[in-house]
């Protein structure tokens, strides 16, 4: 009885508070609608900030670099071999030594990191027992967060004496030293993207192969890895992007001498990995902090940054296309 009474009372009181008024159905609540509209617009501004920042970077690189491009010409930057930006007479703005230095160090790093990364990724994704995987994955994550300056330091104090000893050099800071330490830098990117890609291959593919009597390795070799190919290549591209843009490790490991890192061997021009090189990134780091703002030298550093920007932009774009292609391929089938 009392319960019913209580219920009735509650009902009555709530009736009085009735929230929805039928007449308001078409009556826009001005306050909440305007607020929601403004909030959506605000988030749109946040959302498009990435485009804005990317364009802003490009704009400033071009704005600051245009002086040097006009005065010196882009071909001098791309093909010139002399870099004497602040020399009063006979100034040179040839960035070719840096371009070659970057390409050599990066290529060297990839030659090491590609097999290392891909085989490790296959091992983690397909072969390793769970326990081993649980050790490997955090190890790769820790490698990925290693500050580059620490890797550079290790290259300087431990790796370079070894290189000097092995090859009988007076100075172990060479393109080779930089390549080795840079491969450690690119490794986590290659491993994690390749591993994701291998894992995204549907189980049925594998089961179908096992059902046909293929061994696990045959399945990996003929089914899984080919299906994951685009993703693996994308991982390599991103690793390349990471390596070519890396500053501190190469700055500390490569010796930074400005010279053409080439040698003649039996009449053929070959890259010389046992000589000191300076990369595009290292040159900006070395000269950028004390160059007079607005000078031609300052402007020429932005041209170098622009070259770097274009290289990494293209590499990332290709990686992007490859990853989305793989996703489409695997979801369509």
């Amino acid at each position: 009885m009392s319960l019913q009474h209580a219920e009735k009372e509650v009902n009555q009181e709530v009736e009085d508070l009735k929230i929805v008024n039928k007449e308001t159905l078409t009556q826009k609540s001005f306050k909440s609608n305007t607020l929601d509209f403004l909030i959506e617009k605000m988030f749109f501004v946040f959302g498009s900030i990435a485009i804005f920042v990317l364009l802003l970077i490009l704009f400033f690189l071009i704005r600051e670099g245009s002086g040097a491009i006009r005065e010196v010409g882009i071909m001098e930057f791309l093909t010139g071999t002399r870099w004497y930006p602040s020399s009063p007479q006979g100034a040179g703005y040839g960035a070719l030594p840096f371009i070659l230095g970057s390409l050599m160090v990066t290529t060297g790093a990839l030659v090491i990191a590609i097999p290392w990364g891909i085989f490790t990724a296959i091992f983690i994704a397909e072969i390793a027992p769970r326990r081993v995987r649980e050790i490997l994955k955090p190890a790769v994550e820790v490698l990925a967060i290693f500050p580059s300056v620490v890797l550079g330091f290790i290259a300087l104090v431990i790796l370079s004496p070894i290189v000097a000893n092995v090859f009988g050099l007076s100075n172990g800071l060479t393109a080779l030293t930089a390549s080795v330490i840079l491969s450690v830098m690119a490794l986590p990117t290659i491993i994690s993207i390749s591993e994701d890609s291998i894992k995204s291959v549907p189980k049925d593919y594998r089961e179908a192969a096992y059902a046909l009597g293929a061994t696990r390795w045959e399945t990996i070799k003929t089914i899984t890895v080919p299906a994951a190919k685009s993703g693996i290549v994308a991982g390599v591209m991103l690793g390349f992007g990471r390596a070519v843009g890396e500053t501190m490790t190469v700055l500390m490991a490569a010796g930074n001498a400005i010279n053409m890192p080439i040698t003649e061997f039996l009449g053929v021009t070959l890259p010389n990995f046992l000589t000191s090189v300076r990369t595009l990134t290292a040159n900006i780091a070395i000269e950028g902090s004390d160059v007079p703002w607005g000078s031609l030298h300052y402007s020429s550093l932005f041209v170098i940054a622009l070259i770097l920007f274009v290289i990494t932009f293209i590499v990332n774009l290709i990686a992007d296309l490859l990853i989305s292609r793989q996703r489409r391929k695997l979801t369509n089938e």
């Binding site: 970077i57 600051e64 940054a305 932009f313 990332n316």
Partner: peptide
């Protein structure tokens, strides 16, 4: 994705300029 790939030293130079 492209911003994630821009070399850190380029960010430095950009920050200096702007």
């Amino acid at each position: 994705r492209n911003l994630a790939g821009v070399p850190s030293i380029v960010y430095g130079l950009f920050g200096l300029a702007i």
